[in-house]
Design a protein around this nucleic acid. Structure first.
Length: 190
DNA sequence: GAAAAGATCTTCT
DNA sequence: GAAGATCTTTTCC
């Protein structure tokens, strides 16, 4: 199928989560282009008790087993969607949750969709999906093609990347698998 | 300003 | 039947 070049994501999830910082997501909606820059990520893989893939493949998480460069979208708490970038080899359930991003283009459309502006546009997993109109129909989508593309950027200097504990989970809480860009205002609090 | 609860769907126990 | 990789609004200091 896709021969898109996502070999740079075919690495352990923690490394992939670091590499995704600073990369951009481009979303096309009805001829309009929205773009955001990733500023906060969290790593999940099959050996991780907090991961959806911990207990093996299911209908819901199948996209996470499809290999690096796919999107995995899930629906949470009956209200919100969350976007993951799948990493690693096909058949191994690993991926990176996009927790926060910084708007680059299409600010007005995002604000319109969110009903808010400024820092509240994309500083959380569910907020990004609402701002970019991401839903379950994009789960399993290849990120090499429209309407949702992942754009690689040069890696950040190591001293700009901070590793901390993850947010909003109740298992494996002490793992340092959340990464964010130091000093960026769009990184979610806590 | 901080804390708590509500909204509401899928999956697994 | 319960809990969840969340966000918003309300309530009480």
């Amino acid at each position: 199928m896709s021969r898109d070049n996502f070999e740079w994501l075919n690495v352990p999830v923690e490394e992939a989560a670091r590499r995704l910082l600073g990369c951009e997501l481009e979303r096309e909606i009805a001829g309009e282009t929205l773009r955001v820059r990733i500023v906060e990520t969290e790593a999940y893989d099959q050996a991780d008790e907090a991961s959806h893939t911990y207990r093996g493949p299911t209908v819901r998480n199948a996209a996470m087993f499809r290999g690096a460069g796919h999107a995995y979208v899930y629906f949470i708490h009956g209200i919100h969607h969350c976007l993951n970038v799948v990493t690693g080899v096909e058949g191994y359930g690993s991926g990176v949750l996009i927790r926060a991003a910084e708007p680059v283009t299409g600010l007005e459309l995002m604000a319109e969709r969110r009903g808010k502006g400024g820092i509240e546009l994309t500083n959380g997993p569910g907020k990004i999906c609402q701002a970019l109109d991401i839903d379950l129909t994009l789960s399993g989508h290849s990120l090499g093609r429209p309407p949702l593309r992942l754009i690689k950027r040069p890696p950040l200097p190591a001293d700009q990347v901070i590793a901390t504990r993850r947010v909003g989970i109740s298992k494996a809480v002490n793992e340092l698998r959340r990464f964010y860009i130091a000093g960026n205002p769009f990184v979610s609090k806590k």
